[in-house]
Design a protein around this nucleic acid. Structure first.
Length: 567
DNA sequence: GCCGTTTTCGGCCCGACTGTTTTCAGTCG
């Protein structure tokens, strides 16, 4: 059972308890443990069976018992019991925006609502507005919420960062360009460089906020907007992305920026620790119990300093140990884009790329790189993009000639070889030996069996001709789950054989992800950040791989392509 | 349900917004 599956079961149990009227903090214990498990790289199933799971923060005796039952029998007895008592449809309708567990429970108790159909009937018969504390507006919200539920049964999908980031940057730039704007910044998950984002948060200060709000509402990307006012405005873009613009006085800019950058768990933990010292943190400032005064800071740096921490960059604000590290002055010096000296995974027209050798070289040189590995697909790739051995021998010559001509960048002759189901790779050893750089990836025959996939990959890792494993889990964000893989065994094999592992920067992949990359680097795996560029301009996507590396706490010495090629 | 720089019991982050109601509960981020 995967960590994601265990986390989902605990989240479901949390909702069930909520509908059952359980204490708020008990519910919180379940949702918090679900988050911890999602953030854990090691197999939680194995930890549960080994009796070490209570090492995880927020997991005590009771949760241990429930998780062990879950991995052993496939279900949690308490959840099964609650499901007998609470109709499944109630879980569904509690996903409606603005409809919480308390109201859902009352709808069930007072109107016998057991699911979406009952609820629609009750709302249409105007029975909801007859309930105490509810009125016609709630009824309306329920009906539109039900429509949404029908249209998107899986819930709203979070957009990939590359789908949302350009919009956020353009709107922030538009705010800055307005003469009424003093300062504007992107906050929220976009600023933290998460894999996916729900919406866009923008923070701005202005001498005449209302006019600024009215101006941004007229931007060409904006389809709908709420009322412009002194505190902000809510926008929806043409592509359906929600945007929250908030205004703040310049002297308190840091507080709002910090608050809306999040993450929620980071802020909650930050505040909880502050309370122990008599300080109350909010988006409005820091209230000191000892003086009764509220302090204001213009920058986040000052806020973190006041609370006893080194400055924590947005990428680390996930409540994954950054507060302890910042308090102890032990935050890592994170890898930066400017430190990358070359890209070790790229394609040309020889396989499925759209740039020639020269075009790719020129683009890499323009980025200031010292080297670029040309790693077209191998012999068995198919799709008409396969490269026969003879052609690759020829390509080695072409690259040697280009290098001989002496340009500002060194090209490395390489290949992205397919890992076959038995773990062997394309091409004979004498050809592989002649290459500067060999990446091995799985592109076909994903098995649903973790043991088989893992064994296949470890065979490739053990192959002395293989330098690096490409996009190790094969996941496509929002589109394809990773194939089952025992990542801990892969990491151990990579350390033992001194085989590197890639963080693929393509924003659709970001593979390794930040959790696994952190675990791999801590275990001693040499990480490489590559773009897998299929056209000259996509070499720029390195910034997404850098972001994943930073979110994985990686330092430049853990990233091999911060070094010159000979090193 | 978890946990301990005051604690093995009694706390557990903070505020805005909404819709309903004359002061607040519920929901959300």
């Amino acid at each position: 059972m995967t960590n994601a599956q265990i986390a989902a079961a605990l989240e479901e149990l949390a909702v069930l308890y909520q509908l059952d009227g359980a204490d708020h903090y008990r519910v919180l214990a379940y949702t918090n443990s679900a988050r911890t498990i999602k953030n854990e790289g090691r197999s939680v199933e194995e930890m549960a069976l080994a009796g070490t799971i209570t090492e995880l923060p927020g997991v005590g005796k009771t949760l241990e018992e429930k998780i062990v039952a879950l991995v052993e029998t496939g279900e949690i007895p308490a959840a099964a019991k609650l499901k007998e008592k609470i109709p499944e449809g109630l879980l569904e309708i509690s996903r409606i925006q603005g409809l919480g567990p308390k109201t859902v429970r009352r709808l069930y108790d007072e109107l016998d609502v057991t699911g979406p159909d009952d609820l629609r009937a009750a709302a249409e018969a105007q029975k909801v507005r007859a309930m105490k504390g509810l009125g016609p507006k709630v009824e309306e919200k329920i009906l539109t919420g039900l429509d949404k539920l029908e249209a998107e049964p899986e819930g709203p999908t979070r957009l990939r960062l590359d789908e949302i980031r350009p919009v956020a940057e353009e709107l922030a730039a538009a705010l800055r360009d307005n003469p009424n704007c003093e300062r504007a910044e992107v906050a929220g998950s976009v600023r933290r460089w998460t894999e996916t984002c729900k919406d866009i948060d923008l923070i701005a200060s202005s001498t005449s906020p209302k006019e600024l709000a009215a101006a941004i509402a007229e931007h060409e990307l904006v389809a709908e907007h709420g009322n412009p006012n002194e505190t902000g405005i809510r926008l929806t873009t043409n592509s359906g992305i929600g945007v929250d613009v908030r205004f703040v006085a310049p002297e308190a800019f840091g507080h709002l920026l910090q608050h809306f950058t999040g993450s929620g768990p980071h802020n909650a933990e930050l505040r909880e620790r502050a309370v122990a010292r008599g300080l109350h943190v909010s988006e409005n400032g820091i209230k000191d119990d000892s003086t009764g005064e509220t302090e204001f800071f213009a920058t986040e740096e000052e806020i973190y300093e006041r609370l006893g921490y080194r400055y924590i960059v947005p990428e680390l604000r996930e409540d994954r140990g950054e507060l302890d590290a910042a308090a102890a002055g032990e935050l890592p010096e994170l890898v930066e884009r400017s430190q990358i000296k070359g890209d070790l995974h790229s394609h040309t027209t020889l396989s499925d790329g759209v740039g020639s050798l020269e075009e790719m070289a020129a683009a890499a040189e323009a980025l200031g790189y010292e080297y670029l590995a040309i790693t077209d697909h191998s012999e068995s790739h198919g799709f008409g993009n396969n490269v026969e051995a003879d052609r690759l021998w020829q390509r080695i010559e072409e690259i040697a000639e280009l290098n001989h001509e002496g340009r500002g960048i060194r090209l490395l002759s390489g290949s992205e070889v397919n890992i076959h189901p038995n773990g062997s790779v394309d091409y004979d050893d004498d050809l592989l030996e002649e290459l500067d750089w060999v990446i091995a990836s799985i592109h076909t025959a994903f098995s649903d069996d973790a043991d088989r996939n893992t064994g296949r990959m470890i065979t490739a890792i053990e192959n002395p001709q293989v330098d690096c494993i490409g996009h190790p889990t094969g996941r496509l964000i929002n589109r394809r789950d990773p194939y089952p893989l025992n990542i801990e065994r892969v990491i151990a094999a990579a350390v033992e054989n001194d085989t590197m592992i890639e963080i693929n920067s393509n924003p659709r992949r970001r593979d390794l992800n930040e959790i696994h990359a952190r675990m791999a680097a801590e275990a001693g795996v040499k990480i490489v950040i590559n773009t897998d560029a299929h056209r000259p301009e996509t070499l720029e996507l390195i910034e997404y791989g850098i972001a994943t590396a930073r979110r994985a706490w990686l330092t430049p010495d853990q990233v091999q392509n911060t070094r010159s090629w000979w090193k």
